[in-house]
């Protein structure tokens, strides 16, 4: 196609790059909070990837996938926050 496809392709490239750097942040840390926040960001990038896939494939179903990723990203963020507040995962274990 034309303009929209090109924009979506460019957007996919940018989002993939973002996924890479955020994944690097998840691995790098250095604190548990950094990892949790970067995981939350991965969820948002997953929504973006879902929307872009919907555009490129022309199928509405991928928008539902994006919605599901949003729901589970939120739940995951809340669960990770509770875990961090309780501090039951020690930092050493998280770093190893």
């Amino acid at each position: 196609m034309s303009l929209v496809t090109g924009a979506a392709a460019l957007g996919s490239f940018i989002v993939s790059l973002g996924l890479l750097v955020v994944a690097w942040r998840v691995l790098r840390g250095p604190s548990t909070a950094d990892r949790a926040i970067a995981t939350d960001m991965l969820g948002l990038l997953g929504i973006a990837a879902g929307a872009l896939t919907a555009i490129l494939s022309g199928s509405t179903a991928f928008l539902d996938v994006a919605l599901g990723v949003a729901v589970f990203g939120f739940l995951g963020a809340v669960a990770l926050a509770g875990l961090m507040e309780r501090g039951s995962v020690s930092h050493e274990e998280a770093e190893q």
Binding site: A7, G11, V15, V21, R25, M41, L45, L52
Partner: peptide
């Protein structure tokens, strides 16, 4: 949207 979310990702990093 792509540019803004890319900037967000770089901000996280």
């Amino acid at each position: 949207g792509s540019v803004i979310i890319g900037l967000a990702a770089f901000g996280v990093a």
